[in-house]
Amino acid sequence: MDILKEISENLELGDFEKVSLLTKKAIEEKIPVEKILKFGLIGGMDIVGEKYKTHQIFLPDVLMSARAMHAGMDVLKPFFIREGMPNSGKVILGTIQGDLHDIGKNLVGIMLKGAGFEVIDLGTDVSPEKFIETAKKEAAYIIGMSALLTTTMPMMRKVVELLKKEGLEDKVKTIIGGAPVSKDFAQSIGADAYGYDSTDAVESVRKLFNQA
């Protein structure tokens, strides 16, 4: 069988040991690392994401697969460093100031990581300044904000405004989410995207990176 397909299938099963072994084998077989990443690991995670969306599998299965993907990534990493890492997108994530709800945000973080993004989680009660400062320091392309209270969601507007003020709106994109937040609200504050659950968040983040 095609080894990339084998990687993808074992990733679906969440077998991280096999994925790790097969990734090593693929490298020995001189398959380009980008190809292993794209068709083996990310390809597998895409199938997993789709199956989760249609309830063929549940969240724990996704996380098992994500763990397997990371096992594969660990094998690939040294080669990327040698050959130059493809820009794995960086996302700054946090719950907005005044708000302590973090369950949904954490889940979004887990799924983004699972999909291969690098996530810097600032935790809860994060000030607009802190979001911007970190995005600058980390040269991140995306800021993801969560709010669960009607009283804290207006604070998200400030982050968008600050980005504009600093002339960063083309360099840093914003995505927001949380129960009181909607697509309309995202538009009204000038955020670039909105996600209603973790799968939607991954899709939206991917879209933002693709548009970059």
Partner: peptide, 9 residues
């Protein structure tokens, strides 16, 4: 408290 629905989050 609640159970967490692992299909719909």
């Amino acid at each position: 408290p609640a159970i967490f629905d692992l299909r719909f989050e």
